[in-house]
Every structure is written in structure tokens, then in C-alpha cells.
Simulated assay, not measured.
Amino acid sequence: MPIFLRAQGFKVYFWSNESDEPIHFHVTKGDPSPNDTKIWIKKDKTFQVASNRGRISDKDLMRIMILMHSYVDEYISVWKAHLGYEKYIG
């Protein structure tokens, strides 16, 4: 499970086997778990919250998405290098 970014007490990561899912990232404040918040990356490089089971506040979600917008190209490159594919929603 590669951790892409640590910022403001949060970890942004993806699992090593994402089962051919579209590009997305998970966000947690503690140890990664299957119940963490999941955010899709759309083809136009905008974001869509898939689930917020991690119960991250709207304010923190917005800050994370603003931060990730700065790194979206790098994140996609890391995803493709690690998982070997590029697939989007929408």
C-alpha cells in the first residue's frame, strides 16, 4: 500500500491491488483501513468523493482536494507505474 502524501495529519494512499478500479485515492487520519474515505479522479483531473466512511469533515476534505490538485499529475504517474493501468470515471 503506497502512501503518496502525508499532510496536515492525513495520509493519502492507494492499495497495491485496486482490482482494475478507476484511479482514486484513499484518505485517513490513522492507520489505513478498508473503511477510509475514497476520492475518484476524473479524466478532467477533478475529484469526486466516492465515499466518506472515514468521516472526514467537509472542510478537511476540501483542503485535501486542493492539495491533491497540485499533485494530481504526479499521483497519476505513480498509480500507473505501480498498478500498470490508467482508467477514469466520467
Rank of each mutant, 00 (worst) to 15 (best):
M1C: 01
M1W: 00
M1Q: 03
I3V: 15
F4P: 12
L5G: 11
R6H: 13
A7V: 07
A7T: 10
Q8P: 00
G9N: 02
G9S: 00
F10Q: 00
K11M: 12
K11F: 08
K11C: 09
V12E: 03
V12K: 02
V12A: 07
V12G: 04
Y13M: 14
F14Y: 12
W15N: 03
W15T: 01
S16F: 04
S16H: 05
N17C: 10
N17E: 11
D20K: 13
D20I: 05
E21W: 15
E21G: 10
P22A: 11
I23Y: 00
I23R: 00
H24T: 10
F25P: 07
F25V: 09
H26F: 12
H26V: 10
K29A: 12
D31V: 12
P32S: 08
P32A: 10
S33V: 14
N35Q: 14
N35T: 14
N35E: 15
K38V: 15
I39S: 02
W40T: 07
I41V: 12
I41E: 00
K42M: 03
K42N: 05
K43E: 15
K43Y: 09
K43F: 07
K45R: 15
T46H: 01
Q48L: 15
Q48Y: 13
V49H: 01
V49E: 03
A50G: 04
A50K: 11
A50Q: 11
N52D: 00
R53P: 02
R53Q: 06
G54E: 01
R55I: 04
R55E: 13
R55D: 11
R55T: 11
K59D: 15
K59M: 14
D60L: 01
M62G: 02
I64M: 05
M65G: 01
I66R: 04
I66D: 07
L67Y: 03
L67K: 04
M68K: 02
M68V: 01
H69A: 10
H69G: 06
H69Y: 06
S70L: 11
Y71K: 13
Y71I: 04
Y71E: 08
Y71N: 05
V72H: 10
V72E: 10
D73W: 07
D73F: 14
E74C: 13
E74H: 15
Y75F: 15
I76M: 12
S77N: 05
S77L: 04
S77A: 09
W79C: 13
W79F: 15
K80R: 14
K80D: 08
A81R: 10
H82W: 10
G84V: 12
G84D: 09
E86S: 10
K87L: 06
Y88E: 05
I89S: 02
I89R: 07
G90T: 04
